[in-house]
């Protein structure tokens, strides 16, 4: 890992902490997928990875590449912007689909308590 030695010590620590935070939030979010018990509870969990998890990881990449290359490297930010725009859309569609299927299959009035 020779290229990372080009980072000054403070930047190395900062990037390390950001990477750990990002991965930690993503991991807890996915852990929620396994641990929570029904679909409507589980649907909340992956949002952790796509909000703060992505934010910390993108911040780490921006800091790391910008210092290594000596100029601001910004395309990584596009990933963050894109994910914040698309995650709500996918989740909303998915919840609507789930609600529709529950209504069709069970024939009882949703929402269940």
């Amino acid at each position: 890992m020779n290229h990372l030695d080009g980072l000054p010590p403070w930047a190395a620590v900062l990037v390390g902490v950001l990477v750990l935070l990002g991965a930690g939030f993503a991991f807890i979010g996915s852990l929620g997928l396994v641990r929570l018990r029904d679909f409507y509870k589980r649907v909340h969990a992956p949002t952790l990875g796509s909000t703060l998890g992505t934010f910390f990881m993108v911040a780490a990449s921006v800091v790391c590449f910008s210092i290594l290359q000596g100029r601001p490297v910004l395309p990584v930010i596009l990933i963050g912007v894109f994910l914040t725009l698309t995650t709500p859309i996918t989740l909303m569609l998915l919840v609507r689909a789930a609600l529709y299927r529950h209504r069709v299959e069970d024939g009882r009035q949703m929402p269940p308590r």
Partner: peptide, 9 residues
């Protein structure tokens, strides 16, 4: 600090 970064990644 670079050792920390390597381990953190």
């Amino acid at each position: 600090s670079h050792g920390f970064l390597a381990i953190a990644v």
